[in-house]
Design a binder for these strands. Structure first.
Lengths: 225, 225
DNA sequence: TCCTAGCCGTGGTCCGGCTCACAACCGCGA
DNA sequence: TCGCGGTTGTGAGCCGGACCACGGCTAGGA
């Protein structure tokens, strides 16, 4: 397993060497291929996962079958912690968007760590707080912004986390279909497609399959606010 | 200050007597009258508050002045913890919906408590996890449900927390204007009013100023899903 | 006691975005 | 090489809900 990624994960970045290696030892490894599901909404389970490689989507589906994505998680990010501290079934389905691997930690192991090491508790608290802040922002966006605005915001967020800057712009290999992008911003595939086409026609970005090249960050950011 | 309420607050319910009284001692008391503001979105500040009496609304406003309410908090509930663990400005404005009082704890005091007492850390983690779960539910509702559905959900939640059962139904003194209720569900005042009027005309509830009496919980719950 | 300021109820109009429908495209396996 | 399933592009129509414009109601202050 890739211990470097774990070491740099926000959750553990405050640990000293000895603690980090010990923690690495108590974690198990899991691998998935694109499209495979790690667990389903409603499943029971008490493991916490950290992405070491690839990307996953956290999604939930409504009674009539429509889907909504809560987040895309990449290397270093943690998920599955809700069922740990607020016992109950898994609140989302986790699916690999690319081939991916994870380190996992069981409830009991984590609690052992918590009691001894206040830094781990603080790491978890700050992770959860930051997630809560983001979730609140998403709520505000759904209420205040229109679909193009939300699409712009989502692209900027993906660019921030997965983008690589080149001469012709920021290449963002988000690995999402437009359908998935639509589920992420809470809109229909068609509307998202039209928003993207509009951005492209203005020269703000270039569309490529499962990725975009952002050519005018400035304008796109302005559209997002 | 009302130590009983603090003692029963979810956050501290797992503490033993000695710890609880000690904690009570290190908390300060604040009081507000209806309409007064405790702090504004964007302010700096590192205090965590627990409501001991009354209700507050946590709200944010968009650049063009529209408002949105994240939550209504009543006795025993905690807020303001985001700025503690994910340092940054306050993410919401807190306003008293009724006369209210709070116990508060500063960053430094809380950290001292955290290091010594793993139970407090667990209490905080489970509070944050539960808040995150709720916030995710709100996102799902905004994406999947229509306005009447969201209004029904909000009423049921308020009934759950502030309702008193009587012979003629569940009396819910939510203390919110329809405008505030609308901001809570992310809709316009007019649309919310029409939804309420519709529910009333079906005999599911009776409207009263700043409160409702729910007469048919069953049907209302069915409309909410 | 009246006057004013918030609230609450209810119509009309308009528009963003969803749904439906279809065409073009791209990579992949038989 | 030829389908073929999964994607992407785009137009037409419709509808939920925002916005606007009132009128009535109630409570609190001069």
């Amino acid at each position: 397993m890739d211990n470097d990624v774990l070491r740099q994960a926000p959750l553990f970045s405050s640990l000293d060497d000895e603690a980090a290696t010990a923690l690495g030892g108590s974690m198990a490894e899991t691998k998935l291929r694109r499209g495979e599901v790690l667990f389903h909404e409603g499943d029971s389970g008490d493991k916490l996962y950290i992405v070491t490689e690839g990307k996953v989507k956290l999604g939930r589906s409504s009674s009539d079958g429509r889907e909504n994505l809560l987040a895309i998680m990449g290397p270093g990010q943690m998920f599955g912690e809700l069922s740990l501290f607020d016992p109950g079934p898994r609140s989302a389905t986790v699916t690999a968007v690319t081939d991916a691997s994870f380190g996992s930690l069981s409830h009991d192991d984590l609690l052992r760590w918590l009691d001894g090491r206040p830094q781990v508790a603080r790491g978890l608290l700050s992770q959860l707080a930051s997630r809560l802040r983001k979730s609140n922002d998403v709520v505000a966006d759904l209420v205040f912004s229109d679909v193009p605005g939300r699409v712009a915001k989502a692209l900027l967020d993906l660019a921030d986390r997965f983008g690589r800057t080149a001469d012709d712009g920021v290449h963002v290999h988000h690995d999402l279909t437009q359908e998935e992008l639509a589920q992420l911003v809470g809109a229909s595939r068609e509307t998202v497609n039209k928003a993207l086409a509009d951005f492209a026609s203005r020269g703000w970005l270039r569309l490529e399959p499962r990725s975009v090249v952002i050519m005018d960050l400035e304008r796109l950011s302005r559209r997002a606010r």
